[in-house]
């Protein structure tokens, strides 16, 4: 088990190096110059050139990559070209909103999608199945920002129930925290519910055709008991897997959701940074995203040992 974890952690190193190099060279090649943006619309070419030099942007690619990598190895993600704040500070400032949004979305999605999927899988081709599948396909088919606008319009502008935008830290009270997050989480969970419900349904159909389920049914166990205790437990592995794979999807959706609801999260941080070519911030955040992704998938692999006794590492 421990050697498995260590081996997995070691294999993530080349992944991270690849991500770093990929992102860095992508940005190096991108046109767009932070010096020209800092200097402002009315700056002259000479002022921009001076700014480039003082920011060290005139140095060759390899020098810059080496300097940056050396910093990262020492645990320093650098400072933002624009705000002059350490990238770690910027990430820390925005971690809570994004994390809260994602956790709430995952919780919401699992609570809604798993029962939906189980019921759909139980009677394949029945009306519940068709309704669930229709909803799932709809969830995939409507862009997040359309759902977001509609929710904000109905619940905030029309009904006056919830704030339109912003974020309240959990430390300032659970109710305002939830009031700010509930609409974004609902908007974001559409795709995720669709994804999880579909996988749950497929996994259930698979499991329900197995012999031991027939045995359980034959023993006279209630339908609900069979579905939610026996079958669901055995269908858990693909469900958990898809939750992990979906994290990357969720981060992407979070970018749009954070824009619509003005949540000061990491997704917006990195989009702004890309639009401004704030290289240290982009590199830092993407590196952090991939680390998170890798770690979550490691956790999920580990959870298999609990969910499925046959799996051992």
């Amino acid at each position: 088990m421990l050697t498995f974890v260590l081996r997995r952690l070691l294999t993530t190193i080349p992944v991270m190096i690849f991500v770093a190099l990929f992102v860095f060279s992508l940005l190096y090649l991108a046109p767009g110059d932070p010096a020209a943006l800092i200097a402002g619309d009315q700056a002259t070419p000479e002022q921009i050139e001076a700014m480039r030099r003082s920011l060290g942007l005139d140095q060759p690619f390899l020098v810059r990559f080496w300097n940056w990598s050396w910093q990262v190895v020492q645990g320093d993600l650098g400072t933002s070209i624009f705000s002059n704040l350490p990238v770690t500070t910027l990430i820390a400032q925005r971690l809570e909103p994004t994390l809260s949004l994602m956790l709430l979305t995952v919780a919401l999605s699992v609570l809604i999608a798993v029962p939906m999927g189980v019921l759909a899988g139980a009677r394949q081709g029945g009306w519940i199945d068709r309704a669930v599948m229709a909803m799932a396909v709809m969830g995939f088919s409507v862009p997040v920002f359309v759902i977001g606008y509609l929710l904000a319009y109905v619940f905030s502008v029309r009904l006056n129930l919830l704030p339109v935008q912003g974020y309240t830290p959990l430390a300032e009270g659970f109710r305002p925290f939830l009031a700010n997050l509930i609409l974004p989480a609902v908007a974001l969970s559409g795709v995720y519910i669709a994804l999880i419900a579909r996988i749950t349904r497929t996994a259930m159909i698979d499991v329900l055709s197995q012999d031991y389920i027939r045995t359980a049914r034959a023993k006279g166990l209630g339908t609900m008991q069979v579905l939610f205790l026996h079958a669901l437990k055995n269908a858990a592995v693909p469900i958990v897997t898809v939750i992990g794979v979906g994290i990357a999807l969720l981060i992407g959706g979070a970018v749009v959701t954070e824009t619509v609801f003005a949540i000061p999260g990491i997704g917006r941080l990195v989009v702004d940074a890309i639009l401004r070519r704030d290289y240290p911030v982009i590199q830092g955040v993407i590196l952090m995203f991939s680390l998170t992704y890798v770690l979550i998938n490691l956790l999920i692999d580990l959870s298999y040992t609990i969910l499925d006794p046959r799996v051992r590492y």
Binding site: Y149, A152, Y153, S156, V157, N160, P163, V164, Q165, G166, E258, T259, V260, F261, A262, R268, D272
Partner: peptide
């Protein structure tokens, strides 16, 4: 000073007194 990236959201927030 609140930087609201979406103009629609900003206007809704203004109407709601946020």
């Amino acid at each position: 000073w609140l930087i609201l990236p979406d103009q629609q959201t900003a206007l809704d927030a203004l109407k709601q007194g946020e």
